Computed example of a mutant assay.
Amino acid sequence: MTTVLIVDDQPMQRFGFRMLLESQDDLRVAGEAGTGTEAVRLAAELAPDVVLMDIRMPGMDGIEATRRIIARAAGTGPSDGPRILILTTFDMDEYAYAGLRAGASGFLIKDALPEELLAGIRAVAAGDAIVAPSLTRRLLDAYVHHLPATADTPPAADPRIASLTDREREILTVIAQGWSNAEVAERLHLAESTVKTHVSRILAKTGARDRVQAVIVAYDAKLVEPA
């Protein structure tokens, strides 16, 4: 059973999400929040598996709420807290970019089909990031000028990158360029299971929560330059 915290400042929107989730045998609504502040509190109290997070809310927005939920959960257990799925209006919204950098595991457009929303919730609950690799690359390229000054650190000096083997660094570089696991396997002549093993080791060594966060690490360390 996957538990979900619904965060949206529109009561009718929350009601629609609840009705959809409660129609599924494997999903349960843990609670609802109408503000970012309430979302942070309920995420700590209810420990949901997934937070369905709206971005634009009065007071504390969904970006800051995401940042605080991730920070509070860091190091608390094997899963390090809930996975956060950002809801945005446009797929190239700069707020979606900010949400990913804050620690979200992916984002969905608000007018996504019900089956897409359900699949997204299940995917992030399973530890996957649901942003397509090519879309992640486009999003980061579009907003890479927001990267902090530490992005000028040479790759070799970044401790997250220095711990990687040559093969792991190569794979991190190409997934940051938008390659899927299948494409990495085909182009580097590896079994897809081997690629998945490498990706798991990359996540562990870089401290990334998922594939999207690993791509952000690659951009931070300048392993990849914007197109």
Rank of each mutant, 00 (worst) to 15 (best):
P48W: 05
P78G: 06
A149K: 15
T136R: 12
P133G: 03
G103P: 00
P82G: 13
I84Q: 03
I121R: 07
D93E: 06
I130A: 06
A102Q: 11
G75I: 12
A149G: 06
E116S: 08
L147W: 10
R67I: 05
G106D: 01
T88L: 03
T136G: 10
T66V: 04
R56Y: 06
R68I: 11
D61C: 11
T89P: 02
R138F: 13
L85I: 10
A112I: 10
H145Y: 14
P82Q: 12
V144F: 13
L108T: 00
A123W: 05
A149V: 15
L117K: 00
V144C: 14
G106L: 00
E94Y: 09
A119I: 05
A98V: 06
G99S: 11
G99D: 02
I86Q: 00
A74G: 09
E115F: 12
L100A: 02
G62S: 12
R68E: 14
G120V: 08
A102N: 05
A125E: 00
R138K: 15
P133W: 04
R83V: 01
S79A: 14
L117S: 02
L100D: 03
D111R: 01
L118F: 08
V124W: 03
E64N: 06
D49Q: 04
A132I: 04
P58V: 00
L147K: 12
H145V: 15
Y95H: 13
G103R: 04
E116V: 14
P82F: 09
V51Q: 11
R122M: 09
G120Q: 05
M53L: 07
G77D: 13
L87M: 15
G81F: 09
G62P: 00
P82A: 15
G75D: 06
R83F: 02
S134R: 14
A65S: 10
G77N: 13
A73H: 08
L118S: 07
G62K: 12
V51N: 08
A73K: 04
R138A: 13
D128F: 08
I86G: 04
T76C: 08
T136S: 12
L117Y: 00
L135E: 05
L85M: 09
V131G: 05
A126W: 10
M60E: 03
D91N: 09
R137H: 12
A65D: 03
K110I: 00
D91K: 03
P148I: 08
F90L: 13
G75A: 11
I109Y: 01
L87Q: 07
G120C: 04
I55K: 07
E64W: 09
D61H: 11
G62W: 02
G77V: 12
A149Q: 15
V124L: 09
S105M: 03
V131P: 01
A142M: 12
G77M: 06
E94C: 04
A129S: 15
S105D: 02
D128V: 07
D49I: 07
D111L: 04
V51Y: 05
G127I: 09
G99C: 07
T150L: 15
A112W: 02
A119G: 10
G81L: 10
A132Q: 02
P133I: 03
R56T: 11
A142E: 12
H145M: 13
E116I: 10
D54C: 14
F90M: 12
D49G: 12
G127S: 11
Y97D: 01
